[in-house]
Design a protein around this nucleic acid. Structure first.
Lengths: 187, 187
DNA sequence: CTTTTTCATTGACCAAAGTCAATAAATCAT
DNA sequence: ATGATTTATTGACTTTGGTCAATGAAAAAG
C-alpha cells in the first residue's frame, strides 16, 4: 500500500483527502497459485496493483497457449483493453504464485476521476505509462531477434526462469519451446 | 477543424469557452511532400491533427529504413514517446504528400490541462486511444503472418499502395521488399 | 523525349525458426 | 517414495523469409 502511494506520488501529489478517498476504494485480495484473476469472456472492470506474486496474461490460439505479458510486484495488472472498451476479455490472467493485490473497480475510479482533477490526471499518466510500456514491447518485436529478446528479458528479470516455466517465456518472446531450448543451448 | 471538434465531442463535451481556448493554441501548418515534420534527434514538443496528407514514421537501422507507422487524415501525428518523455526522437516523421495539419505544443496543452478538467480528461482519453491502437499493432505482430498483416492493412486502407511505395509497406508489415513482392505474386 | 534514378520482380541459395517425434528430466499427486 | 504427468532437450526434416544478384518497369530530372 505504501508502495502504491509512493508510485502515485511520483506522478501527482495527492492531498490526504484524495488519497484517503482513493484508498477507500481499494479492495485487498489474495489469489492462490494458478487461480484466475480474470477469464476469457469476462469484462475486466478493474485495475489491480500487485503487492506480491506474479501473473501471466495469455490466451489460447489454435489449441496453444500464447503468453502476451507477465506482471510483477509493483505493476498494475488488468486487461486494459477490456477495461477501456468494455469488450469481453480475450485473455486469461492467472496467478503464477500466491499473490496479494489491491483492486479498484472501474466505476469507483471513474467516480474519483469526476471528483478530483488530480486523480483524472493520475489516470492520464497511467495511460501514458502503459503506452510507453507497450511501445517498448512492439519495438522489440519489430527490431530484435528472439535471441536478443530473450537476453533483454533475463537482463531485466534474471530470476524469471526460476518463477515461470520456460515454455511460457518462449511464448512471451514469440518462439516455440524447442527454439528457446536451442537458443539457450548455443551459449 | 470541424473534423477535430467532432472527434473531441465524441470523447468529451467541451464548452464554447474551452473549445475557443483550445483552438487559440492550434497552429495551422502546411508541409510539402517529402518535408520533415520531425527529424531524428529533435524533441517532439507537439501533437498535430491531420487535415490532409499522409505521413510516415520511420528510422534508419543498419542503413535501412524501417517504417513503424503511417498517419492519415483524421489521425494525430506525433512521436508520442518523445512527447511524453522529452527524450530526443528516434524516428523521422515525413510527409508523403502535401499535407495540412493543426499543431498544438506541449506547453500549451499542459496549460490547458491545468486550466480545464475536461481537457485533462481529453488528454487521458487520447492516451487511452493511442494505447488501444498500438496494442492492435502488437497483436498483429505476435499473432499473424506477414501475409495476413498485408491483407489486414489493405483491407483497412485499400488505396495505401497507390499512395506510398511498396517497400515502405513491406517494412511496415515487417518484411523485406522482395518478400512482399512474393506475397503479392502468390495470389 | 531521353536519360537517370528509383522501385519492383524474379531466381538461386542460405539461415532461422517451425514441425514431428523420441527421450530425458523435473514436478506433482497419491 | 513411486508412479504419473508435465516440461525440457535433442535430432531429422520442412517451411518461410532473408540475401545477393540480375533484370525490368516506372518515375523523376534534365
Amino acid at each position: 500500500m505504501e508502495q502504491l502511494k509512493n508510485y502515485f506520488n511520483k506522478l501527482v501529489k495527492l492531498t490526504d483527502q484524495e488519497w484517503a478517498d482513493f484508498q477507500a476504494c481499494l479492495i485487498k485480495e489474495t489469489h492462490a497459485k494458478k487461480a484466475y484473476l480474470l477469464e476469457e469472456g469476462q469484462k475486466c472492470d478493474f485495475i489491480a496493483f500487485i503487492e506480491a506474486g506474479t501473473f501471466r496474461f495469455y490466451h489460447i490460439l489454435d489449441g496453444e497457449e500464447i503468453v502476451t505479458a507477465f506482471f510483477f510486484p509493483g505493476d498494475f495488472v488488468t486487461n486494459y483493453r477490456s477495461f477501456l472498451t468494455d469488450n469481453p476479455s480475450d485473455h486469461h490472467i492467472q496467478a503464477l504464485q500466491d499473490a496479494i493485490i489491491y483492486k479498484i473497480h472501474k466505476k469507483d475510479l471513474h467516480a474519483l476521476y469526476d471528483r478530483y482533477q488530480s486523480i483524472e490526471r493520475l489516470g492520464r499518466l497511467i495511460a501514458e505509462n502503459l503506452y510507453l510500456t507497450i511501445t517498448k514491447r512492439l519495438d522489440s518485436f519489430q527490431h530484435t531477434s528472439p535471441e536478443e529478446r530473450y537476453q533483454e528479458l533475463i537482463n531485466r528479470n534474471s530470476k524469471l526462469l526460476q518463477e515461470v516455466p520456460q515454455y511460457m517465456v518462449a511464448s512471451y518472446i514469440g518462439v516455440k519451446p524447442e527454439t528457446l531450448s536451442r537458443i539457450r543451448a548455443r551459449k
